[in-house]
Simulated scan of single mutants.
Amino acid sequence: MTKIIKIAISFVLLTTIAVISIAGWLSSQGIEEEEVTLGAVSVNVEAYFSYLDEFGMPQEKRTDIFYIADPVDETPFTKVGIYKINVSLPTDPQFIENFRVNVEVFSSVETYFRIAIYEQMTLTYISNGKKVEVATTQPSLSQFAYNTTEFYDNRDNDGYFYFKNKILRQGPGVATKKTLISGYIGNYNAISERYSLQMGFIIDAVQAIDGPQINWGLPNRPWDDGAW
C-alpha cells in the first residue's frame, strides 16, 4: 500500500513539473494571447407598413400583417414571419408601396450581418366551394427602394444583401436600426385582387472578428474583395 501511494505521489509531482515546464517554455518563447471581447450577436427583422390615413396623417400597421394560409380541407393557420402584401388595392394599408423593412442590431460586440429576401406571388380562387391557393411565377422581382448605400446587393451570387460595416447596439437593450426597404420605386401597377404577395426573410449575423471567414466561408468582402 505504501509503495502504491509513493507511486501516485510521484506521478502527481511529475505532472505538476511538466505543466510548470510547459508554461515556462511558452513564456520563454514570447508567445502572447490575443484578447477577444466575448458578447452576444443578435439581430432582428422589423417589417411593417407605413401609410397615410383618410385625413392624410401618417400611420403604421405592425400587427395582423402575417400571411394566413387557408389550404383545402385543412384548418387555416398563420405563417409567422411571412408577410402578406396587397398588390391590388392602393388604399389598403398593406399595399405593396407601403412596405418597409428595418434591421435591428442588439449585438454587444461588433457584428457583420447579411439578409436574404424571398417573395412569392400567390393566386387564390374558389373551386367547388373551397378556397385554393397556388404559387405563381412573376416576371421579375419587386422594385422595392433598397438601401444600396449601406447594403451591398449580392443576390445574383448567393441571394444576400450584406451590410457593409461592422455594427453593434447603441446600448444595453437599445438597438441600432438600419433601413433596408424604404418604399417602392415608382407606382405599382395594381393587379387582380385574386393575387397577393408573400414576403419572408433569412437573416444571418456573425461577430466581426473571424466570423465571415469561419461561418460564411468568405475570405474577402463581397463588395470590394478587400479583407474583413
Rank of each mutant, 00 (worst) to 15 (best):
P93K: 15
F113M: 13
S182H: 04
Q138D: 04
L89I: 09
S127A: 12
Y184Q: 13
E150W: 02
T124M: 07
V134Y: 11
T136Q: 09
T137M: 14
F144C: 03
N102I: 00
R169G: 09
I126H: 11
V103R: 00
K130E: 12
P90W: 14
M121L: 09
A116C: 01
Q143C: 02
A145G: 07
D156T: 15
S107L: 06
V105Y: 04
I115N: 01
Y195F: 10
V134G: 06
D153S: 06
E133N: 15
T179A: 08
N147P: 00
L123R: 09
V109Q: 13
F99Q: 09
G129N: 14
E133A: 10
F144N: 00
I115C: 03
N187G: 01
E193A: 07
Q170Y: 02
E97Y: 15
D156L: 12
I185W: 03
F144Q: 02
K177Y: 07
N102M: 00
I115L: 09
G173W: 11
F161C: 05
E119N: 06
T137E: 15
V101A: 05
A190L: 01
F99A: 12
D153A: 05
N165D: 02
R194A: 04
G159L: 05
F161I: 07
A145F: 09
I181C: 07
Y146A: 02
I115T: 03
K166T: 08
Y162D: 00
G159P: 02
Y152S: 00
F95Y: 13
Q143F: 03
Q120P: 03
F151H: 03
I181K: 06
G129C: 14
G186H: 08
